[in-house]
Measured scan of single mutants.
Amino acid sequence: MVQKSRNGGVYPGPSGEKKLKVGFVGLDPGAPDSTRDGALLIAGSEAPKRGSILSKPRAGGAGAGKPPKRNAFYRKLQNFLYNVLERPRGWAFIYHAYVFLLVFSCLVLSVFSTIKEYEKSSEGALYILEIVTIVVFGVEYFVRIWAAGCCCRYRGWRGRLKFARKPFCVIDIMVLIASIAVLAAGSQGNVFATSALRSLRFLQILRMIRMDRRGGTWKLLGSVVYAHSKELVTAWYIGFLCLILASFLVYLAEKGENDHFDTYADALWWGLITLTTIGYGDKYPQTWNGRLLAATFTLIGVSFFALPAGILGSGFALKVQEQHRQKHFEKRRNPAAGLIQSAWRFYATNLSRTDLHSTWQYYERTVTVPMYSSQTQTYGASRLIPPLNQLELLRNLKSKSGLAFRKDPPPEPSPSKGSPCRGPLCGCCPGRSSQKVSLKDRVFSSPRGVAAKGKGSPQAQTVRRSPSADQSLEDSPSKVPKSWSFGDRSRARQAFRIKGAASRQNSEEASL
C-alpha cells in the first residue's frame, strides 16, 4: 500500500507489516507532472514488484545509463575542470599563466611583423604560434561548454546555449574565428590575403580581455564609479562649461589675427588640448587678449579636469580597504559563530546551576481559565487552554471583563483591629484584591452614581456627606486619597496599604 505524507511526517506501520521504503516523488525527473509535487512517498516491500516509481530507473539526467562509479567519476571530473577554468585557485594559476604568456607572445610578434627589418623573421614564428593558440583556445572553449554542466542552470543543451551566450564566451568564439580567418588568408599569399590579415588581427587584441574572465577589475571599476557618480558628474560638468566658454572667448579674441583659429572647431581643439594639460603646441594664441583669457581659464579649468582622477584614486583606495575588511570579517565569522554555539550549549546543559530557565518553558505551562457563560453571564466551569493561546486569551478576557487571573496568589494580610475594612479593594481582606471592580459596581459605588440613583428620595436630598476616604477608595483603587487633616496617621497607613496592593496587582498582571 502506498501512502503520501504532505507535511513531511512518516506514518508508522503496524508491527506485523514489513519494512517501508521512503522516497520523494518530487525529486524523480521521470515522474508525471501530476505526481511531482514534492510529497513523501512511503511504499511497502511489494511496491517495487508492482512497478512503482521507486523501481523505475531514472529516465533523464546526465548519468541515466551509467554505473554509479562511472557517474561519480564523470561528475567529479566535470566539477574539477569547471573550477580550474572558471574559478582558478592554487596550482590552477599555472595554466592561466601559460595562456597569458601565449597571448602576450602573439601580441609581441604581431608588433614585430609590422616592422620591415623583422617582418620576415617574425612571420614564421607567428604562424606556428597562431596554430598553437588556435588549438589551445578551441579545446578550452569546448571543455568550458562541457564542464558547465556541473551547474544546475547550465545543464542540458539549453543550459549550454545559455552559457555560450555569456560575454566572455562570445569574445572567445570571435577571437577563434578571427584567428582561423587570419591563418587561412595568410596561407594564400596574395594582396587580398595581406589586407585581410592586417584587418582581422585587430580582433586578436581581444585575447587580452579574456585574461580576466571573472571580471573582477571591471566590477571594481564600476563599483567605484557608481559610488562616486555625483562627484564625477559635477566635476565633468563644470569642466565642460569652462571648455566651451574658454574656446569661444579665445576664438573671438584671435579671429582675423591668428590663422590657427579660423573656425570655432579649431578653438575647441585648442581648449581641449590645453585644459587636459596635453599641450601639443600646434595651436596657441598670439594676441595679448587671447593670452590673458587662455591663462585665466587654464587656471580654472585644469583643476576641474584633474579632479576626476583624484576622485577615482580615493575611491579605489577606499574600495580596496573595504574588501580587505570584508575578507577579515569572513575569516572571523565562522569561528565567532562556533564560539557562540558552544557558549550557548554550555549554558543550556549546565546542570549544576538552578537559576537557568529555558525560554520555551514559559509557554509550556498550562493555565486554568474560567469560561464565560453567555446565558447566565457569569464565569462557571474552567478548562485547560493550550500554551500557545494562553496569553492572547488572557488579554482578551481581561480587556472585556476586567478580571485578573493569576496562578498562585500571595497570602493577603488580615485586617488589623485598629483599621477596619474600608472597601472591596482595601488590600486587608483576603480574596478581595484578586478581582477588579466591574464597570457597573464602579458607577453605582461612586458618589455621582449614588446621587443619581437616589436623586428622587428625600434622604438623598437632606443627607450630605463630606468627601471621605471611603468614597475615594471606591472611585480609584490606584490613587492615594487626600487627607483632610494633617495629623491623621490612620489615613496615611491606609494610603500605603493601597499602594502596596496596587503594585502587587500590576506585577501579577505583567507576569500573566
Results as ranks from 00 to 15, higher is better:
residue 1 M to V: 02
residue 1 M to T: 03
residue 1 M to K: 06
residue 8 G to S: 15
residue 9 G to D: 15
residue 55 S to C: 14
residue 62 A to V: 13
residue 79 N to K: 15
residue 81 L to P: 03
residue 85 L to R: 04
residue 96 H to N: 11
residue 96 H to P: 14
residue 101 L to H: 04
residue 104 F to S: 13
residue 107 L to F: 14
residue 113 S to F: 11
residue 114 T to A: 10
residue 114 T to I: 09
residue 119 E to G: 13
residue 122 S to L: 12
residue 127 Y to C: 07
residue 130 E to K: 03
residue 144 R to Q: 15
residue 144 R to G: 10
residue 147 A to P: 04
residue 154 Y to D: 03
residue 159 G to R: 08
residue 159 G to E: 09
residue 159 G to V: 04
residue 162 K to R: 13
residue 169 C to F: 14
residue 172 D to G: 04
residue 175 V to L: 15
residue 178 A to V: 14
residue 182 V to M: 13
residue 185 A to G: 15
residue 185 A to T: 15
residue 188 Q to K: 15
residue 189 G to V: 10
residue 190 N to S: 15
residue 190 N to H: 13
residue 193 A to D: 05
residue 193 A to V: 11
residue 194 T to I: 12
residue 195 S to P: 14
residue 195 S to C: 09
residue 196 A to V: 12
residue 197 L to P: 14
residue 198 R to Q: 14
residue 199 S to R: 09
residue 200 L to P: 10
residue 201 R to H: 14
residue 203 L to P: 12
residue 204 Q to R: 01
residue 204 Q to H: 13
residue 205 I to V: 11
residue 206 L to P: 06
residue 206 L to R: 01
residue 207 R to Q: 07
residue 207 R to W: 10
residue 208 M to V: 12
residue 209 I to T: 11
residue 210 R to C: 07
residue 210 R to H: 10
residue 210 R to P: 07
residue 211 M to V: 11
residue 211 M to R: 04
residue 212 D to G: 15
residue 212 D to V: 01
residue 212 D to A: 05
residue 212 D to E: 13
residue 213 R to W: 10
residue 213 R to Q: 10
residue 214 R to W: 11
residue 214 R to P: 09
residue 214 R to Q: 12
residue 215 G to E: 05
residue 215 G to R: 06
residue 217 T to I: 08
residue 217 T to N: 02
residue 217 T to P: 12
residue 219 K to N: 08
residue 221 L to R: 01
residue 222 G to D: 08
residue 223 S to P: 00
residue 225 V to I: 15
residue 225 V to D: 03
residue 225 V to F: 11
residue 228 H to Y: 12
residue 228 H to Q: 03
residue 230 K to Q: 14
residue 230 K to M: 07
residue 231 E to G: 00
residue 231 E to Q: 02
residue 231 E to D: 00
residue 234 T to P: 05
residue 235 A to V: 06
residue 237 Y to C: 05
residue 238 I to L: 15
residue 239 G to R: 05
residue 242 C to G: 06
residue 243 L to V: 14
residue 243 L to F: 10
residue 247 S to W: 04
residue 247 S to L: 05
residue 247 S to P: 03
residue 248 F to S: 13
residue 249 L to P: 02
residue 250 V to L: 09
residue 250 V to A: 04
residue 250 V to G: 01
residue 253 A to T: 09
residue 253 A to S: 12
residue 254 E to D: 03
residue 255 K to R: 08
residue 256 G to R: 05
residue 258 N to Y: 00
residue 258 N to S: 08
residue 259 D to G: 09
residue 259 D to N: 13
residue 259 D to Y: 09
residue 260 H to Y: 12
residue 260 H to P: 02
residue 261 F to I: 13
residue 261 F to C: 02
residue 263 T to I: 04
residue 263 T to A: 10
residue 264 Y to N: 00
residue 265 A to P: 08
residue 265 A to V: 07
residue 265 A to T: 05
residue 266 D to G: 05
residue 266 D to E: 06
residue 267 A to T: 05
residue 268 L to F: 09
residue 268 L to P: 02
residue 269 W to L: 02
residue 269 W to C: 00
residue 271 G to R: 01
residue 271 G to V: 01
residue 273 I to M: 00
residue 273 I to N: 01
residue 274 T to M: 05
residue 276 T to I: 05
residue 276 T to N: 07
residue 277 T to S: 11
residue 278 I to F: 04
residue 278 I to N: 00
residue 278 I to T: 01
residue 279 G to C: 01
residue 279 G to D: 02
residue 280 Y to C: 02
residue 280 Y to H: 01
residue 281 G to R: 01
residue 281 G to E: 00
residue 281 G to W: 08
residue 282 D to N: 00
residue 282 D to V: 01
residue 283 K to E: 06
residue 283 K to R: 13
residue 284 Y to C: 09
residue 284 Y to D: 06
residue 285 P to L: 03
residue 285 P to S: 04
residue 285 P to H: 03
residue 287 T to N: 00
residue 290 G to S: 03
residue 290 G to D: 03
residue 290 G to V: 00
residue 291 R to S: 00
residue 292 L to P: 04
residue 293 L to P: 04
residue 294 A to G: 14
residue 294 A to V: 06
residue 296 T to P: 06
residue 301 G to D: 05
residue 301 G to S: 08
residue 304 F to C: 03
residue 304 F to S: 04
residue 305 F to L: 07
residue 306 A to T: 12
residue 306 A to P: 03
residue 306 A to V: 08
residue 307 L to P: 03
residue 309 A to V: 13
residue 311 I to N: 02
residue 312 L to S: 02
residue 313 G to E: 06
residue 314 S to P: 06
residue 315 G to R: 02
residue 317 A to T: 07
residue 318 L to V: 07
residue 319 K to R: 01
residue 320 V to I: 13
residue 322 E to G: 09
residue 325 R to G: 07
residue 328 H to N: 01
residue 329 F to S: 08
residue 331 K to T: 04
residue 332 R to G: 06
residue 333 R to Q: 11
residue 333 R to W: 11
residue 335 P to A: 00
residue 335 P to S: 07
residue 335 P to L: 05
residue 337 A to V: 10
residue 337 A to T: 09
residue 337 A to G: 07
residue 339 L to R: 02
residue 339 L to Q: 00
residue 340 I to T: 02
residue 340 I to M: 08
residue 341 Q to R: 06
residue 341 Q to H: 06
residue 342 S to L: 09
residue 343 A to S: 10
residue 344 W to R: 07
residue 349 T to I: 11
residue 350 N to K: 12
residue 350 N to H: 12
residue 350 N to I: 10
residue 351 L to F: 13
residue 351 L to V: 12
residue 352 S to P: 14
residue 353 R to H: 10
residue 353 R to G: 07
residue 355 D to V: 09
residue 355 D to E: 11
residue 356 L to V: 11
residue 356 L to R: 10
residue 358 S to F: 11
residue 359 T to K: 08
residue 359 T to A: 08
residue 360 W to C: 04
residue 362 Y to C: 12
residue 378 T to I: 15
residue 386 P to S: 15
residue 388 L to F: 14
residue 411 P to L: 12
residue 418 G to V: 14
residue 420 P to L: 15
residue 430 P to S: 08
